[in-house]
Design a protein around this nucleic acid. Structure first.
Lengths: 250, 250
DNA sequence: CATGAAATACCGCATAGTGAAACAATTCTG
DNA sequence: CAGAATTGTTTCACTATGCGGTATTTCATG
């Protein structure tokens, strides 16, 4: 067993260190990237030239930018499953019909990731990662797992406290997940961010495998218990069912 | 001047050679990637281990997949400009209102790239690259350039013929671009693919810089001249104007 | 035109990536 | 269930290649 970081290619790590910096802030110059990484000017220079020659990075007058060839690669993940594309449509419909923010959420490496979102003002949040135990959609995914995998999540990721409402105790989490399994949906009551509530349901494939979670979220002022548990949940179940049916019968 | 491919980091090229293969076809094993590249088994092994350790690639039972961390990086490009996000909304509205396929198109490295699209069945096409001279949206972008840049496009990319309707002669192209500049929109009459027509308008920022092109496309049977040039163009102009206004005044 | 800063080019050195081959694990096959 | 075949993983010696310090050029600025 080899657990040290020495496996693999150090050069590739450097390349992605640069790309991650550009993801955070575009239009940086070489010397600005020097300050944000522990890489040398010549190293960054060489890497950026390589990347821009291949189109993964774009060089403009004011600095370097992420290239659209990386978008092309990344988008592959959103088209992997037929259900993902259908879910995209459902997210938009949800947003339009409820006039709230809506999302489709999947898990990767024990993180929750936004795959589709409706209702963002400036940023789409797509690809952003969130802790599963602190969001309605995340808890829906946890509830679909067996105890072993939930244990693994707790062990590897920990139940970090984001607000005073975050579930940080394993036993409480297990109890809550059982409850979610029974009722078929999850609610987030300001557990990740103060003032933000949400409700979410699981989306299954025709083979009854979990595809992801479909959810709606918004300000506490508007997201009262009755609103979420009656109006929104029913609509979410409908949409989740439509995804399943559309996968099966087009 | 250094024009050979020896500039830069060869190792990074190998990493992306692997990622490009996975973009084309996910779920490949190491030996399958060996057949699709000129890389050694051990090299691919080491690169994949590095990439999956960083989350840019996901290892499953049946092979390797593009990781969502690459989606996160790639999505940065779609949120770069405020106008991009607004255009996304407009593309969806266009699709809903016309019940046709709609797109928002930008240029990078002399290629046209789909940034937003509505109405795809299985694949979103986002990030896919198309030749500018063979699509309505591409010609709109060419028409916004000065002759020098159009010359550069012709020289570097060439006017490849995709159908018998593709404009392959520089003089005809210049003539057509002038026409597009006058009328303020472009039409694609089966110039990229037989049976496929489209119409597109430019989208400008409040500073009157070209942001991209907004378009609608569909089958020749439905996309008659009057339909495109009256109904659709007016609606496209409206939406393009709304993008501009929304950028300026929120 | 001088000054400073950033980008680019150069180059010797040692590291780190490479490929071949050996080994282990897994699957296929009769 | 044994043996074969395929694939994944590890090892290792070699040297190609990535690295960083420095030199040079370009560019902006006063």
């Amino acid at each position: 067993m080899n657990t040290d970081q020495n496996i693999g290619v150090a050069t590739t790590r450097k390349t992605f260190a640069i790309l991650e910096v550009l993801k955070e802030e575009e239009g940086l110059t070489i010397t600005e990237i020097t300050q944000r990484t522990d890489l040398t000017k010549s190293t960054i220079y060489r890497h950026l030239k390589t990347l821009s020659e291949m189109g993964y990075v774009i060089e403009r007058d004011d600095g370097f930018y992420i290239g659209l060839r990386l978008l092309e690669i990344g988008e592959k993940t959103r088209n992997r499953e037929a259900g993902y594309t259908i879910a995209k449509r459902k997210v938009f419909e949800l947003g339009q019909e409820t006039d709230e923010r809506a999302l489709f959420f999947v898990e990767e490496d024990l993180d929750g990731v936004y795959l589709h979102r409706y209702g963002s003002l400036s940023e789409t949040m797509i690809g952003k990662r969130r802790p599963l135990h602190s969001l309605a959609s995340g808890k829906v995914i946890l509830a679909a797992w067996d105890d072993d995998k939930v244990d693994q999540y707790i062990a590897e990721k920990g139940l970090t406290e984001y607000t005073s409402n975050t579930t940080t105790d394993p036993d409480s989490l297990y109890e809550e997940l059982n409850h979610i399994r029974e009722q078929g949906y999850a609610v987030n009551n300001e557990e990740y961010m103060d003032g933000l509530c949400g409700v979410s349901v699981p989306v299954y494939t025709p083979e009854n495998e979990l595809l992801g979670a479909l959810g709606v979220f918004g300000p506490t002022s508007r997201f009262k218990d009755k609103y979420m548990r009656n109006e929104l949940v029913d609509r979410l179940w409908d949409k989740a069912g439509e995804v399943k049916v559309t996968i099966a019968y087009g």
